[in-house]
Design a binder for these strands. Structure first.
Lengths: 111, 111
DNA sequence: TCACTTAATCGTATATTTGCGATATAAGAT
DNA sequence: ATCTTATATCGCAAATATACGATTAAGTGA
């Protein structure tokens, strides 16, 4: 691969791609669903629900946190996670914007 | 890694993750934008626009095609690509559904 | 037929992701 | 102080993704 070419694209394209990557794994989508459903913060419960080892779940949580989609605060011996609604809303909007942009020239398929 | 764990999640989660992966690279987002903008089918023009080698672009096109997001038809010595609006619309809907699902318990952040 | 053009595929190198067990860390309980 | 519980991190292995040059395949035109 030698060189990373990703930097040569626009910042918006990079950001959207980053976000897409964050949710590009069923485990991470499942985690988001659990967090949204329970509303309250959760921690090791996710490990019980998902078919993955504790260390693997921890890693997925870290990636979601790095993407800014979730927040984690330490609560005694455990960590309490929840969705970062502000960032989430932003990405939701950005995504719809991309979809809308793509749909400007509406459906005049050529082939 | 030994075993793939992705199969253990729901089909919907897998499908959404697949779609997210398809657009999880700035080059592929850029390709979709070009295809939408020109409306008409394009082929090697994408290679001229993107900062990538022909073989790399071809590979990205293949991935988008595998994800069902674009269609490619052979037109003489060249290949004509365009967005598969039907599949695209479906994924757009699915995505908004995911967002809505997550937002059911509205923004009652706990931490 | 023989070049030329266009695009797909192959082979290869490297980077990243995914997954797990083992180990560390840190707070609470005894 | 020590044990227990909950998480994070480390180290490793395997799988995927990214990127490119070289080659192949297939259509066009001379």
């Amino acid at each position: 691969m030698a060189i990373h070419k990703k930097e040569e694209f626009s910042q918006k394209e990079q950001d959207l791609a980053e976000f897409a990557k964050a949710i590009a794994h069923p485990a991470r989508i499942a985690i988001l669903k659990v967090l949204a459903q329970r509303n309250e913060c959760i921690c090791g419960e996710i490990v019980d629900i998902l078919p993955l080892a504790q260390s693997t779940v921890s890693q997925h949580l870290k990636e979601l946190k790095n993407a800014g989609l979730i927040k984690g605060t330490i609560d005694g011996p455990r960590t309490c996670y929840c969705i970062n609604w502000k960032a989430f809303e932003k990405f939701n909007t950005e995504f719809n914007l991309l979809f809308d942009t793509l749909k400007v020239k509406n459906e005049k398929a050529c082939c």
